[in-house]
């Protein structure tokens, strides 16, 4: 049996930013491979390079050196347009601050990626996903009319709307109290399970990280250690 092509692979990934006249190395020659269906947490203190790593994985930012491969194909040299199309088809996002569009209803927020991908029946797809996250009744509400937990669940529905092979989550419960955060995390894990999605989640909370299969600990832009735990 041959080893499958990793869903996501980082090769000597480096990101430097100019800061006060000199270069600051945020991410320093990181190597990492994540297999299809795997669930990985990125841990580390503030400034360790977690969010930068996530941005590079999604093609939201460009590496200073090294490579990002999705399904074996390097993405760091793709044009802005090609990256956009890649995200449209392949990558889902969950953000700490939800990032719902304020002038769209919950339902429309979920419909948006489906509409962008051009696949059929955005409304039906969005409605069934809202049902999956338990918000069937709130589809016509605007984000401002929803609680933080509800907003994040809408964001989850949006992230899974196109059934992306890869989901990137940035502190998905960071803005929520622990009880609400726990329920959102349950929903996320359930969705991931059901859709067979590869999940990369940035967090600083070891308890949350413990629910993933592998924990990558970052420190000063380098991988400090990798621990394994049982997936939820």
């Amino acid at each position: 049996m041959t080893k499958p092509v990793p869903r996501l692979e980082l090769r000597r990934l480096t990101r430097r930013l100019p800061s006060g006249g000199r270069e600051l190395t945020i991410l320093d020659s990181v190597d990492l491979a994540i297999d299809p269906g795997e669930c990985v947490a990125i841990l580390g203190p503030s400034g360790s390079g977690k969010s930068t790593m996530l941005a590079l994985m999604a093609g939201l930012d460009r590496p200073s050196a090294g490579e990002v491969l999705i399904d074996g194909a390097p993405i760091q040299d793709l044009s802005e347009d090609a990256l956009a199309l890649l995200r449209r088809r392949t990558i889902g996002f969950v953000f700490q601050s939800y990032q719902l569009l304020g002038n769209l209803t919950a339902l429309e927020n979920v419909m948006l990626p489906v509409e962008l991908s051009g696949s059929g029946d955005p409304r039906g797809r969005a409605a069934s996903l809202l049902a999956e996250v338990g918000l069937s009744e709130r589809g016509h509400h605007y984000p401002a009319q929803l609680s933080g937990g509800e907003q994040q669940r809408v964001a989850l529905a949006r992230a899974f709307a196109i059934g992306p092979p890869l989901l990137l989550a940035d502190e998905p419960t960071g803005n929520l109290d622990s009880a609400t955060g726990g329920r959102v995390l349950d929903t996320l894990m359930a969705l991931r399970e059901r859709h067979g999605t590869t999940l990369v989640m940035v967090t600083h909370d070891p308890a949350i990280a413990a629910r993933t299969g592998r924990q990558v600990h970052l420190k000063d832009g380098r991988i400090d250690r990798i621990t394994a735990g049982s997936p939820a």
């Binding site: 939201l60 956009a84 995200r87 990032q99 569009l101 948006l112």
Partner: peptide
């Protein structure tokens, strides 16, 4: 700006 960034993250091209 925030909404545009989200659109971009969702895969909308700059020219779109």
């Amino acid at each position: 700006l925030d909404a545009i960034a989200v659109l971009r993250a969702l895969g909308v091209r700059p020219r779109e």
